[in-house]
C-alpha cells in the first residue's frame, strides 16, 4: 500500500474513533502496513490539515490522533448545537489541578501545604470530573492517597503529554505579571 493510499484510510479511522486513537492502535488495525509507512502517512496527513481553509484540525492529544473542529468556528457550531460552553472549573479546582499536574504523585496534605488552604473539596471535584485519579498510597504514617492527572486531563486540556506543559520554573514571571 502506498502512502497516498494509506492516508485516507487513516483519516477515516481517526474520524471514527471517539477518543484520540494511538499509533499503536492504528498499527494493530493495519498489520499489513509497515510502521514507517504508517508514520509517514500520518505526518503527511497532519501537514494537509495544517493548511489554511479547513474547518477541521488533526491534533495529537493524549498520545493519540484526533480530528476536531478549529476553535475559530466555535460560534457557528454553538449556533447549530444550541449549547453554551459547559461550566468551567473554579479557580480553586484549577489551582489544585495545576499543583497535581506538576507535583504528581502528590497527597492532599502536600497540596494544601502549597496552596495554603484546604483543598479537599477541590480534589473531590477533580476526581468526579475524572481529571485526576488515585495513584497508590504514600508509604508514610496514615498512608495518604497519592493523586496524579488522568488521560482525561490530557484530552480535556488538549495536551499530547505532560511534557507539553511549560516548566514550572518558567511560570514564575508569568504569575507575577498577570491577574
Amino acid at each position: 500500500m502506498t502512502i497516498e493510499e494509506l492516508k485516507p484510510i487513516l483519516e477515516a479511522l481517526i474520524f471514527v474513533a471517539s477518543e484520540p486513537i494511538t499509533e499503536e492502535e492504528l498499527a494493530r488495525i493495519l498489520p499489513e502496513v509497515d510502521r514507517a509507512d504508517l508514520e509517514a502517512a500520518l505526518d503527511a496527513l497532519r501537514q494537509e490539515y495544517e493548511a489554511d481553509g479547513r474547518g477541521l484540525e488533526l491534533r495529537r492529544v493524549a498520545g493519540g490522533y484526533r480530528i476536531s473542529t478549529r476553535p475559530e468556528y466555535h460560534d457557528y457550531i454553538r449556533r447549530y448545537l444550541k449549547t453554551r460552553p459547559s461550566a468551567r472549573l473554579s479557580m480553586a479546582a484549577l489551582e489544585t489541578l495545576a499543583v497535581i499536574a506538576y507535583k504528581q504523585p502528590i497527597t492532599l496534605p502536600e497540596i494544601q501545604e502549597i496552596r495554603g488552604v484546604n483543598s479537599a473539596r477541590a480534589v473531590k471535584t477533580l476526581l468526579e470530573k475524572r481529571l485526576i485519579e488515585p495513584k497508590g498510597r504514600k508509604p508514610v504514617v496514615g498512608r495518604p492517597i497519592l493523586y496524579g492527572t488522568s488521560r482525561e486531563f490530557l484530552i480535556q486540556f488538549g495536551l499530547n503529554d505532560l511534557s507539553e506543559l511549560p516548566r514550572i520554573e518558567d511560570l514564575e514571571e508569568l504569575g507575577s505579571g498577570s491577574s
Binding site: M91, A98, G158, I168, G175
Partner: peptide, 14 residues
C-alpha cells in the same frame, strides 16, 4: 505564585 500561574495557563488551555 508559580502554581497560580500554572492554573491560569490551564484556564486558557481549557
Amino acid at each position: 505564585q508559580k502554581y497560580k500561574a500554572a492554573a491560569e495557563l490551564l484556564w486558557s488551555k481549557a
